[in-house]
Design a protein around this nucleic acid. Structure first.
Lengths: 228, 228
DNA sequence: AGAATGCTTCGGTTACGATCGAAGTATGAA
DNA sequence: TTCATACTTCGATCGTAACCGAAGCATTCT
């Protein structure tokens, strides 16, 4: 007993519903202010402030002062991955929270996961990239092939420059709604950014869901065909 | 807000120190009785009983009645992975709990992680397998090569039969003490079992640490050389 | 300077859950 | 049958932390 690092501290931080809601909101990747997070957690600003300082000193959040605002983000990608994997486990154990509302299908179709595309569309994209030989997959490991590198160049993504970053290029991320992997890492981020630049997709305010325009969806589906 | 599965329930389950200690103890892979878990959590049997029923109905534990004992294990490998990744995060945030005692170095050298070898030795083994071309690594993904398959056959591990199981053959698992990957999956399990069969290593009671005999350690280091 | 916004700190209340003693159930041993 | 072990349930206590109102800083706007 008493072996290894203390997981109870982290568990307790995530274990409070208000804090969990705030963390989930931050999984959207946007930096949010204390006031916005208070709303996300369903609590007053005072209470949120106390929670936020706990989360920060616990190492789960980072903050950035900007004028009279204080912006919070998840401390790093490791935290985002932990939250996502807890969502995966929670979903598989039936710990659901939402009365399936109108927003839910949109969320399952396409949503943002920290900084990349998730949901049905995210899973489809990775499936297609693997099927067309743009990405090699070994277990959970992903790597861009030479073919993939040139294909992506055509879309307008320079894989070479992404490689130089410290962050891994490809990473698989388990999707809690689809229970299958989608593409994370700097390439996943670049792809989503690319879609938004082209006007194919845009983020919905106050939500993690990503809306595709009619034309954008057409282009997306054409670009990432699904061979059955 | 209120999007997705409820991570707070799972967080809260892990967030209590007594429960966290019990879960950490179960990461040792052994099935433990309620009495043993009460000791691991540092609480009385009554309290442990209440915690255990919560953990079970929360889907984190599975239990098996056997005579008048009730054996608990982690519900599945997904739970084990979550606990391990929380340990990794906790370690990186400096949420340590142990005053570095005599047991600690042994734990860092070689310990059990659910059912496979972790710690310095676990990391070294994977490094060596990759360096000698027995395992291909792409990012976090691992796959046994043809060479690896025949090499492992020589040690006494039939990769072919492991492949037929539903469980993935190779999986990388982040080591909280080394902060690097070691080998999990059915192959990781088979390798550790192989070492113990040969008498190279044995588990210490009441602990996650794995002790190598002098001769066992010599053989292990020879079998998994480290080219620097 | 004065006013407004964004956030933190303080103080006091409240509620939940962790805890254990004692009693109850189930299984196995004598 | 009786006793012992392994565990659960009940009941009561106690501590902690979540919560909000009010007041206090800090920054920006006018």
């Amino acid at each position: 007993m008493k072996e290894g690092p203390d997981i109870a501290q982290i568990g307790a931080l995530i274990g409070d519903p208000a804090r969990a809601n705030m963390l989930a909101a931050l999984t959207g990747g946007r930096a949010l202010t204390a006031t916005e997070l208070a709303a996300a957690g369903g609590i007053t600003l005072q209470t949120a402030s106390s929670h936020l300082s706990k989360l920060e000193s616990g190492g789960l959040l980072a903050q950035r002062k900007q004028g009279r605002h204080r912006y919070f983000t998840l401390a790093d990608e490791a935290v985002a991955r932990l939250i996502e994997s807890m969502m995966g486990l929670a979903a598989s154990r039936g710990h659901l929270r939402h009365q399936p509302g109108p927003k839910d299908p949109a969320l399952r179709k396409a949503r943002i996961c920290y900084d990349h595309l998730a949901g049905d569309f995210g899973v489809r994209m990775l499936d297609s990239l693997v099927a067309t030989g743009s990405i090699d997959a070994i277990g959970d490991g992903l790597a861009v092939t030479a073919k993939g590198e040139s294909d992506l160049q055509c879309i307008g993504i320079d894989v070479g420059s992404l490689k130089s970053s410290r962050r891994p290029l490809c990473r698989s991320c388990l999707d809690w709604s689809e229970r299958r992997a989608h593409l994370a890492g700097s390439l996943g981020k670049a792809l989503l950014a690319n879609f938004m630049e082209k006007g194919w997709a845009r983020r919905m305010p106050e939500s993690r869901s990503v809306m595709f325009s009619t034309e954008g969806e057409r282009q997306f589906l054409k670009l990432f065909p699904l061979e059955t």
